[in-house]
Simulated scan of single mutants.
Amino acid sequence: MKTDRAISINLATTRQVWGFAEAVDGCLKAGITAISPWRDQIAAIGLDEAARIVRDNKIQVTGVCRGGMFPAETAAGRQAQIDDNLHAIDEAAALNADCLVLVVGGLPGSSKDLVGARQMVTDGIAAMLPHAKASGVKLAIEPLHPMYAADRACINTIDQALDVCEVLGETVGVAIDVYHVWWDPQLANAIARAGRMNRIFAHHICDWLVPTKDMLLDRGMMGDGVIDLPGIRKMVEDAGFFGPQEVEIFSQDNWWKRPGDEVLGVIKERVASVC
């Protein structure tokens, strides 16, 4: 029987109609008490004010989006990315976030060295670890669909992410976003492995539309596409993760054009009926 799991709203889902404060108000009105904001949304209102809103309303922050983007053509460029990630850790700590989500970055410049890019990712996260541990912030690598390997994320499967976790230790885990991993023939085994390692830090949901008109900005509402959401949810729960399902929908031609209250209403209905 399906267990009752809370909903978190990744604030990308309503970013075109609500800022940070408006999104929190809308979520509370809908009975949703967990969010995952993006760093530009935090910056727009100011970290102190964002932290006050979270604290005063007893909001759970399931993640801060995003750190990462480690590969760069020069040592100075790589260090600049690490420095920015240290600031991201501070922001996640101030919001008492469950994790800082890492979209790790792709090939730097005109490079074709995918193995080298992945090593830059491991080295970059390693450089963050002392500050993350001191701040009590978990780091969640989010594997992205292989279509993003060149420009956004050279880590594309849960197993690849877990290999990095094994090198770096327990502070580093994974954010499982169904949009990016649903296709993986090793998905069940990979999620079970993540569970054995106690490394599932977040579970993001949406749907894959057929046809998809834009690979970045045309994610579907749950139930409108082909992802086996209940099946993946069972894998995640069997692996021991029962945190909120975080709804993250980029939808420039559909859901981003709708009122936030309407979007949240549909999300609640779909999570109850198809997830």
Rank of each mutant, 00 (worst) to 15 (best):
E73M: 13
P146R: 07
A72P: 05
T171M: 03
M147N: 05
N156A: 01
K2L: 09
W256V: 04
P71F: 10
V172E: 08
R152A: 13
N156F: 00
I32N: 11
A50M: 02
T62W: 05
I35S: 12
W182A: 12
L264K: 06
R233I: 01
I249A: 07
N10C: 15
A132W: 04
W183L: 03
Q60P: 01
D224K: 11
I35R: 05
C206G: 02
D238R: 11
A51R: 07
R219D: 06
P143S: 06
C165I: 06
L209C: 05
E237C: 08
L209Y: 03
G46C: 12
L209K: 15
V103K: 06
D84H: 13
V210G: 00
L209H: 05
V266P: 01
L100Q: 02
S251F: 07
H131Q: 13
A12S: 08
D184N: 13
R118P: 04
T3R: 15
P244K: 09
I82S: 01
Q119S: 07
L187R: 03
K234V: 10
I155G: 05
N198A: 04
C27W: 09
D48T: 11
G124I: 06
V104W: 00
R219Y: 08
L129H: 05
P244G: 08
L28E: 13
I249R: 03
H180Q: 04
L47A: 13
P259Y: 02
K29R: 15
I205P: 00
Q186Y: 10
W182L: 02
K29G: 03
H180C: 03
E246I: 07
W182Y: 15
M147T: 01
D238G: 08
A23D: 14
I7Q: 07
K268C: 10
G223H: 09
L229M: 10
N85K: 09
H203N: 11
V17F: 01
G26H: 02
I45M: 10
I125Q: 05
A6W: 00
M215Q: 10
C99Q: 12
A72E: 14
A92S: 12
L95F: 10
F201Q: 07
K2D: 03
I176T: 08
N96H: 14
R233F: 00
Q60E: 15
K138L: 11
H131M: 00
G265P: 05
H204E: 15
A126L: 08
Q119G: 01
K29D: 09
P185Y: 00
Q41P: 02
N96V: 00
V121Y: 09
R196H: 11
A132G: 08
P259E: 09
I89G: 02
T33S: 14
V137L: 04
A12C: 11
Y148P: 01
L162Y: 08
D207C: 11
A23W: 08
I82Y: 03
D159S: 12
S8N: 14
G46E: 13
M215W: 12
D224G: 02
C65Y: 14
N85S: 10
A140M: 04
L102P: 02
Q16W: 04
H145D: 12
W256I: 05
K2N: 08
K268A: 14
I35G: 13
V103R: 04
A21P: 01
N254T: 14
M120K: 08
H203L: 13
C27V: 10
L209E: 03
Q60H: 14
M221V: 07
L217M: 14
L95H: 07
L107C: 10
G240E: 06
D238W: 02
V54T: 11
G240A: 09
M222I: 13
P185C: 00
A190H: 11
M221N: 05
